[in-house]
Amino acid sequence: MLKKKICLLGSFGVGKTSLVARFVHSMFSDKYHTTVGVKIDKKTFPLNGEEVTLMIWDMAGEEDGAPVKLNQVRDAAGYLLVMDGTRSKTLEVARSIQQRVENEIGNQPFILLVNKVDLRSEWEIPEATWDELRAAGWTILETSAKTGDHVEEAFLGLTTRIIQAGDDDDDDD
């Protein structure tokens, strides 16, 4: 059995906790509860005939004066970078976190999740920005924790890429 640690990173309020709740418990709530510290969830599922256990670290959102705790990311096999399409500021936060995390743990696989796609009419980030990020090699998924859109794809996609990336350097149970 494979066991992998992944982190959800991003600004506060972008939907990290909601994405985990949707993926692990198939639930969604409109209520907003700031995550305190970190909350670790576990989910086991089959992937390509193999059982995989994901240790999902849902971390407190980054904000002014409280940056992501890099020590908590250190042994992650990959991460989901989450932003809120309705808040253009959260893209800047995501970019900046990605930089710091890459400096800390190197080229681990990650996917940028542009969350709240159910509110697409309120999005205001120009198409060109996505093109530019894709050109820089980023994988981008538009998700909604509310409707479940692309949530499975996000977690399974990241896991697949982690497994591909880690085929040679195996350090799991």
């Binding site: 700031t34 995550t35 808040r87």
Partner: peptide, 24 residues
């Protein structure tokens, strides 16, 4: 414990929302 942070965040998100609406 989360209360204070929570209300901070709520205010911040409201502020960003107002900024977005005014841009719109």
């Amino acid at each position: 414990l989360h209360r204070l942070q929570q209300s901070d965040h709520d205010v911040q998100i409201q502020k960003e929302k107002i900024e977005r609406l005014s841009r719109e």
